[in-house]
Amino acid sequence: MSDWKAETAISFENVSVRKSDFVLGPTTLDIPSGYITAIVGPNGSGKSTLFRMALDLAKPDHGKVTVLGQEIGSGDDDALKQHIGYVPEEPYAHESRLKGSDKAKINGFWYKGWDLFRYQELLRILQVNDHQLLGDMSKGMRRKTELALALAHNPELLLLDEPSSGLDPLAWKIMIDLLHRHMDQGDRTILMTSHIVDEVKRLADFIVFMAQGKVLGFYEKDELFCSWFTYYVSGEGIDARDLADMPGQTGIEFAGMHTFRVTTGKAQDAEAWCTDAGLTVVSKSAMELDEIMAALLHGIGLETKANEARGLRR
Score class of each variant (00 low, 15 high):
Ile174Met: 05
Thr280Val: 12
Ser164Thr: 14
Met293Tyr: 07
Glu236Phe: 15
Leu98Pro: 04
Gly301Tyr: 05
Met137His: 05
Glu291Gly: 13
Lys173Pro: 00
Ser48Glu: 03
Gly256Leu: 05
Gly299Met: 07
Phe229Lys: 11
Phe117Glu: 14
Ser33Glu: 10
Phe51Asn: 02
Leu167Glu: 00
Phe51Pro: 03
Gly140His: 10
Leu224Asp: 02
Met53Ala: 09
Met210His: 00
Thr280Pro: 00
Lys64Gly: 04
Ala270Tyr: 05
Val128Glu: 09
His182Val: 11
Phe225Tyr: 09
Arg142Tyr: 10
Pro163Asn: 03
Arg97Thr: 12
Met246Thr: 02
Phe254Ala: 13
Tyr119Asp: 06
Met175Cys: 06
Ala204Asp: 01
Tyr232Gly: 05
Ser16Gly: 11
Lys201His: 09
Ile39Arg: 06
Leu224Arg: 09
Gly278His: 05
Leu243His: 04
Trp110Ser: 12
Ile174Gln: 03
Tyr86Asn: 07
Ala54Glu: 01
Leu24Glu: 04
Lys266Ala: 15
Gly46Leu: 03
Phe109Ile: 08
Val17Asp: 07
Glu288Ala: 13
Asn107Phe: 14
Glu308Ile: 06
Ser16Trp: 04
Gly34Ile: 03
Ser48Ala: 04
Gly75Arg: 07
Ile31Gln: 00
Pro91Thr: 01
Phe218Thr: 08
Cys226Arg: 15
Thr66Gly: 03
Leu157His: 04
Leu243Asp: 04
Pro247Phe: 10
Ser96Leu: 13
Gly186Asn: 13
Glu162Pro: 08
Gln268Val: 14
Thr145Glu: 12
Cys226Asp: 15
Asp115Ile: 04
Thr193Tyr: 02
Asp56Lys: 15
Leu147Thr: 12
Ser96Gly: 02
Val15Asp: 11
Gly311Arg: 07
Phe254Cys: 12
Pro155His: 10
Leu157Glu: 02
Met287Cys: 15
Pro42Val: 02
Gly265Asp: 11
Gly235Arg: 05
Trp110Phe: 15
Gln212Ile: 04
Glu89Pro: 07
Cys274Lys: 04
Phe225Trp: 10
Pro60Leu: 08
Val40Met: 02
Phe218Gly: 00
Arg97Pro: 13
Gln249Cys: 06
Ser33His: 11
Thr28Lys: 04
Leu80Cys: 08
Leu297Trp: 06
Leu224Cys: 07
Asp269Met: 14
Asn307Trp: 09
Thr263Phe: 08
Leu134Asn: 02
Asp21Ile: 10
Leu80His: 14
Gly113Val: 07
Ser234Ile: 01
Ala171Pro: 05
Ala93Lys: 14
Ser285Trp: 05
Leu203Gln: 02
Ala171Gln: 01
His180Asn: 13
Glu95Asn: 07
Val67Ser: 05
Asp21Glu: 10
